[in-house]
Design a protein around this nucleic acid. Sequence first.
DNA 1: AGCTACCGGGG
DNA 2: GTGTACGGTAGCT
Length: 778
Amino acid sequence: MTTFFLIDTHYTIEAGKAIIHLYGRDEKEKPITLKDENFQPYFYVLTKDPKALEKLKEEDYHVVKVEKEKKLLLEKPVTAYKVTVNLPTAVPVLRELAKEVGDTLEDDVLFTRRYLIDKGLTPLELVQAEVENDTIKSIKPAQGEYKPKALAFDIETYTPPGRMEIDYDNPIIMIALYAPDYKKVVTWKKAKGAEVLDSEKSMLERFVTLIKEYDPDILTGYNSDGFDLPYLLARCKKLKVELAIGKDNSSPIAKGRTRQEARIIGIAHVDLYKFIRRVLGRTMKTQSFSLDAVSKELLGKGKKDVDIASIGTAWNAGKIDKFVEYNLHDTKLTYDLMHKVWPSLLEMTKIVGLPLFDASRLSFSQFVEWYLMKKAFSMNELFPAKPGYKEQTRRMGQRAQGGYVFEPEPGVYDNIAVYDYRSLYPSIIVSHNISPGTVNCACCKGKIPEHDMHFCKKKQGFISGTIKELLDYRTNIKKESQKKKDVVLEARSYALKVLLNSFYGYLGFAMARWYSAQCVEAITAYARHYVKDVIAKAEQQGFTVRYGDTDSCMIELGKKTTKDAKKFLDLVNKDLPDPMELELEDVFPAGIWVATKSSTTGAKKRYALLDKEGNLTIKGFESVRRNAAVIARKVQQELLMIVLKDRNEKKAVKLVKDTVEKLRKNKLPVEEVVIKTQIQKNLDKYESIGPHVAAGKLMEKKGMTVKKGTLVAYIVKKGEGKIRDRVELAEDAKQSQYDGEYYISHSVIPAVENILHVLGVSPESITEATQQTSLKGF
DNA sequence: AGCTACCGGGG
DNA sequence: GTGTACGGTAGCT
């Protein structure tokens, strides 16, 4: 009997047979590799002619057996035929033939995932297997707590002085590895604190050896899907090094130009950037997801203060000690982040039942779908088929009416009480039993708000039942974690929250197996009903409602107190069906709502709140991008702070006026107006010539190589005509050259105009005032 | 208005 | 690998 924690799965074909490989670690931290030769691929067919299924055949692919089964499909009983075939790759071939006989189902579930579902195995949980010669006789889940054996890594690459761009032609100059009991930097020039190899090639070979020696279950990096691993692969290919870090000595498999990911067989590669941005991003304050910003927020300390742009110069001069420290520190941050988010990663992996590699990269809709598939299997429900291209387009055309948004009156207000319904959509789904199988049942009657539709009151739906279970489970966990503070319970609760909040989007997601336009319509109709209800009740109580959106309602307290705000909560909650509940999120000292660009009516989804600690919560305003001049963002942030915190209108207007003035007189340095854009393909491949392409051509003219990945930095010059005819490379630009008017009208004014409107100041008055002081304010 | 291209993170 | 992915904006056409 072997018990071990399951880390990764993989399959190979040997002697015409599929073999599942399981990689893991036992409780004594010994690595485990096992194979299972007794699992066969299959799919289902709904047909009146099961005899025909037995004869399906093409080349080496054939049917092993056909079994009749009673199953459910969208909550209704069906007879399905389980067609077992000889190889996983036979499935896509034979299912096409089977389609002539009937409808096929579950014909696109990856073989190793099928294995996990059918065996009830959950990665990172204990697994118990009866084994003979490393081959599994039987296998089942068990109980135990896994301690991650993780290693963080980070590469530094050479960039020629003055050129800050990513180019696989430049060598990797150092690599750091970090675990609390293991700190290592390898490089190929003399340096303090590093192991020095004689060339890039030997450094890469050493890297492979070091990984093998440490033997981690988890290899983690920051943006390592998008940078470190593809870069390592490119350099290894060039230098003919086998990047054999997989447990089967295979090289990582990098995939996809968009949404790239790099898989290592047997090792869970976790890209923390991807995970944190996708999963935790929503709840974080930071606007940027750089390692520095994320570490500061989650760990309370950032990166080492090193000018990374000078790495090329330092390398050429052989003075790289500082970068060795920097490199190692980055891996320490990465490791510590891993440790910090580990409870969330672990819980998500366990909930969804997929290997950590996949679980850490799930989109929200996949999170729901894989959970539902696991659930469906246990309830004998067939997985509905994924939609074809035509069906997807049809679904995309069915856009449901969204949530209700209260039209705000532009202005700055004090003491804003923010209420929201706790898990609004999930609680609506549960309280009204909304599920694809309960729509317009024959046994019940009724009508939902706004639509001629009803949902069964007698039979629990598959989706609504699943959500009810999850909600109840989460409520219990929250109760427990209130008794004693426990990071694991909190993480589990958070993972469940993420899952619960994703169901609504999932039901309306065109690619979803359990798509239901009717459910989506019903959920939003109820949501609008309940939000309008709070707004009406608040107004009845004499509160001034300032805003409301989808599941929230924001009230200006005015002379009323926080106590009154809490009392109102009870008034609303006593009428709500279980498990719906309104909560008071917080009372904010100040908030601003702005008008739309073209009118004086309040803009929806664009506002900012100032919390008690003096931090801004900004909704709907532009975010940081490198292809925008920094000046715009800077002015916007400062302006909001002045308006909400200092409450000084004059100072606010002065800030914008000064900025406009400085731009007009070219008093701001070139750096504040530089626009940086990456060239994504060869210059001659462009159909439409944007400013960045024109800038790229200027670089070529100077004899510089411009190719995919080159970062062009340019400014817009004074003059007439198209923007692209007025670009100048940042490195050649003089401060006197840039077109202040362009930046005023394209960057600064768009970023601040609706904030100015609230102060009763028109952007024209600001832009004109500095030109002709006599026409002030008009 | 519709289409094309780029952003994110990394050095 | 029994495969499929985001969501938003600026500027050109």
